[in-house]
Design a binder for these strands. Structure first.
Lengths: 258, 258
DNA sequence: ATGTGTGAATACATTCACAGCA
DNA sequence: TGCTGTGAATGTATTCACACAT
């Protein structure tokens, strides 16, 4: 959108593929590093290497944002940082609340990547009265009773759930009722949310299980009982790939504090 | 690099799509819950609802594993639990080491989902000499100096990196050199690994940025300057969707302890 | 020369819709 | 009759390869 570029919608139209959106943060991180080293421009090849993707994909991804590069030269680092930040909505800063201050919640609260990337921990919330008032990562923990007020007073629209699985849905319901429309769920449960609310999950156990699956292959077919064993086949540097889905309701799983 | 691969042996029997593999843990979790409630059978419809996917997808996923259902009836819960566990390689248990025992590492160490799901924390490793010997979640922390020995003595092939970004690559290199072939990376860096080593990332900041992107849209087109704004359109329960990729090397980012 | 931007080709994933088995 | 299993249809993502701007 930026300037008045009204040609083919292909450029800045509202149709950025999810897969591309998921990679923008990666590019942004690599670009930020370059920016800090005062590198003025990068080629798609270089940037792709730094982000761990291949250059064709990167160029295609950028093409959805617009034509921000210069043929024969590459991309202007600062300009791209700005464009991607804007596209991701990071030019404003998002107040976030973290609910469930166990080890995980504390780790999240202390995560340095927040402030620097458009997010601000507006509040830490926990159900344990003993924690109320105690500062974690410099921020005082507040009691769950005040959840609704905290959300409203701070205009919070993004919530992080780091509670035990048993109370996650209930916390989720309260967050949503109070106005939160995006949730990052670390509890190992499928959350049900109304339409219009986004849920993303982070789940240690799932990630490990996926690794185990590939690990098992690499280990050879020793286990092969009556299977039409397939030797190598997969030894590729799989190195990741997620996928989640969703019907009308919530989403999935995750790590969990003590 | 495990065994030889090179071409595209892409057989068929052993060809479970990545997207399906990524969902098996979800199904497994839902099935385990049913199993605990002594539910004997489930239909694809019911199980799909519990796992947060749609039934056609679930049936297609299961079709890659074999024909484990009964037409007109559904799936036998116990049997499916076993088949999926086996497919994921969870019938054996995987010793795992966690490197970097900050808040995050401690949270992971205390995660209950380990033991119950085929994983065992074989060791906790940290570079801080002051931590050595101190138990975290009941497991004594060991010093980084002994990393290689620990990996070898325990036959560890899966490592979790929860260190600050600055040392992640270095830790990764040592893990790989010592024999680890699967890595779950929580540090916000792209790790380079040789072929045959799988890397998966978990990155709080990236997840939040993806949420922010969608959140921005929902917020309306207030920012809309000369854009052919697209009003509602997105209010759907987007609710997730990942995607990562990879070239020849490693992968990406993540949370980070204090 | 060099490296972007992008149509066209290919690969992968989801959804449909229904035949066929219990 | 009810629900699985799966080909065919559709949708999405990645990769190729090259015209073209600088």
């Amino acid at each position: 959108m930026a300037t008045g570029r009204t040609h083919r919608p292909a450029t800045r139209s509202r149709g950025i593929p999810e897969a591309t959106v998921a990679r923008l943060p990666l590019y942004l991180r690599a670009l930020t590093a370059l920016s800090e080293r005062s590198v003025p421009t990068v080629s798609s090849e270089e940037l792709a290497a730094a982000a761990g993707v291949n250059s064709a994909k990167l160029r295609k991804d950028f093409s959805y944002l617009g034509s921000y590069g210069t043929r024969g030269v590459g991309y202007d680092v600062e300009y791209l940082v700005y464009q991607i930040s804007r596209e991701l909505g990071l030019t404003q800063d998002w107040p976030v609340v973290i609910v469930g201050i166990g080890n995980l919640g504390a780790a999240l609260a202390g995560y340095g990547g927040f402030a620097s990337r458009g997010f601000r921990v507006a509040a830490l919330i926990d159900a344990d009265p003993a924690m109320a008032g105690k500062p974690v990562a410099g921020i005082p923990v507040q009691h769950t009773d005040d959840l609704e007020k905290i959300i409203k007073d701070n205009g919070v629209s993004i919530g992080v759930i780091a509670t035990p699985a048993g109370v996650a849905q209930q916390v989720c319901d309260r967050l949503v009722a109070a106005g939160v429309t995006s949730i990052l769920n670390f509890a190992p449960t499928v959350l049900s949310v109304p339409d219009g609310v986004d849920v993303r999950k982070v789940d240690l156990s799932i990630e490990l299980q996926i690794l185990a699956f590939h690990e098992q292959r690499k280990a050879g077919e020793e286990t092969a009982a009556g299977d039409g064993a397939l030797p190598a086949a997969t030894a590729r540097g799989v190195a990741a790939g997620d996928s989640a889905d969703q019907g009308p309701d919530g989403d999935v799983p995750a790590v969990m504090p003590a």
